[in-house]
């Protein structure tokens, strides 16, 4: 019994050449696998770039659905409102800042559209006011963007802020975006901002 066990490798059943035949098979398969991997890597190397692609919102496709605030893996979202000042009308009645039909044109909470008070309104000269986004407070809910786009010049728009974005391989906002506004853009041109001056 024990002998049978001990000498099993040499038993006629498995054949004396068994292990070496197997080793040969393994070696050739390994060689083939190496060749295949090398070929695949070489083929794919022609499609590589040093910098990869990162996510960005096309502001002209964005419909301000509000999902950027809720679907980002980060909380608060890496999507923030960005202001293209050159397009801004500096309106006294800013439809991005004020609720529809505001009680008064002042910064009282009852008049403000932004849920976190992230827009700072400052007087420039009569009759113009500047609107500036406090990015740390902005949650990317797009309420102001909606107001600005529907009734104003559309100078406020959403952008993925890359100092915050983790650049997930699969952006969970992009999955949820109803407009297909999320695009992969080259990492060296990471923004799709509105306004000419925003172009690098």
């Amino acid at each position: 019994m024990a002998d049978a066990h001990q000498h099993a490798p040499e038993s006629p059943a498995s054949g004396g050449a068994g292990p070496s035949r197997r080793d040969f098979l393994r070696q050739s398969l390994r060689g083939a696998a190496f060749l295949a991997l090398g070929g695949a890597a070489g083929f794919l190397a022609s499609r590589t770039a040093r910098a990869g692609n990162i996510w960005q919102i096309d502001p002209y496709l964005c419909v301000q659905c509000g999902k950027c605030a809720t679907h980002c893996v980060l909380n608060p979202s890496a999507v923030k409102c960005v202001h293209a000042y050159e397009m801004c009308g500096y309106c006294e009645l800013c439809t991005a800042f004020f609720e529809p039909d505001p009680n008064g044109l002042n910064t009282g909470a009852e008049n403000q559209l932004c849920p976190t008070g992230a827009i700072v309104r400052t007087f420039v000269e009569d009759p113009y006011f500047e609107y500036r986004i406090t990015e740390d407070l902005c949650i990317g809910c797009a309420k102001c963007v909606k107001g600005c786009t529907a009734f104003g010049n559309g100078s406020m728009h959403l952008q993925v802020r890359h100092d915050r974005c983790l650049n997930c391989n699969e952006c969970s906002i992009a999955v949820a975006c109803p407009a297909g506004a999320f695009k992969r853009v080259p990492a060296n041109r990471p923004y799709l901002m509105k306004g000419k001056r925003s172009e690098p």
Partner: peptide, 29 residues
């Protein structure tokens, strides 16, 4: 509260109430 304010646009008490609540809620967030 905002709906109520639309009905009585001159009520400063309502405005104060809204402002306080708004601040609390934002702090809570």
């Amino acid at each position: 509260l905002k709906v109520r304010l639309a009905a009585e646009p001159r009520s400063s008490a309502l405005k104060t109430q809204i402002r306080q609540l708004d601040q609390e809620l934002r702090a809570e967030y």
